[in-house]
Amino acid sequence: MSRIIEKQDLSENVVRMVLEAPAIAKKRRAGQFIILKIDEEGERIPLTIVDSDADAGTITIIFQVVGRSTAALARLQTGDMISDLQGPLGNPTEIENFGRVVCIGGGVGVGVVYPLAAALKKAGNHVTSIIGARTKDLLILEEEMKKVSDRLIVATDDGSYGFHGFVSAVLQNLIDAGEKIDRVYAIGPVPMMRVLCNVTKPHGIRTIVSLNSIMVDATGMCGACRVSVGGKTKFTCVDGPEFDGHEVDFDLLANRLRMYQTQEKQAMEAHRCECHGK
């Protein structure tokens, strides 16, 4: 059991929670995730650990309401209990001083790239961060990202804030301007990661992506999260979640993420009925 210490709405449908998890907080490193299960009937939901406080014994998660399980999670309040929290899972990000790195986050992916940017900055890298959202109101963690970056560029699809356009266009501009970039971290929706990898590939810039495959056990037992990387099948949970973006088969990833679309709709209907009932 784990208590919700703090809950905050970051934008419409994006929630930040601080959870009591002393053992995980002590052990976790940037890039790792947890599995969270709300109650007896709940799904096992993989969520990146955005931040942790070993002294307070807490971890921070950020999630977007996309289905019935995340909707149920968002309904919980400070002080409520979550039945299961498992982690830290996955391999930590490889953190070194690579030189000049660009950390890119789109949508709720900003929450995933934040701990990487923080760790890379701490390791002495020059960190440029590019964060994006569909519109200004959906942008998250701007202040936090500013603190861990040498330079922060904001982009919105509709131009309501910062650069008008996609984060990929911002990156393209940096490359075109002749900036030296040693590494790119690209985390967000699949189409965004795919485009960013297409931008960096011709320039041979190593690009790390963090994948959000569907998972069940998240300890290498089931293979639900299998992806194709460099033509080889890998499990996101134990071989990842980070991979060389130039090697990832994004079509396969996108297809597999849609595997339960029909059931998800059905579950959301059921969820709405529940909500109306209350």
């Binding site: 009937e41 709940g42 799904e43 096992r44 019935r68 069940v216 339960y260 059931q263 579950a267 059921a270």
Partner: peptide, 12 residues
Amino acid sequence: MKAYRFPEYDTP
């Protein structure tokens, strides 16, 4: 995960 009892249980 008791998916055979979906949607009563959340896992599909």
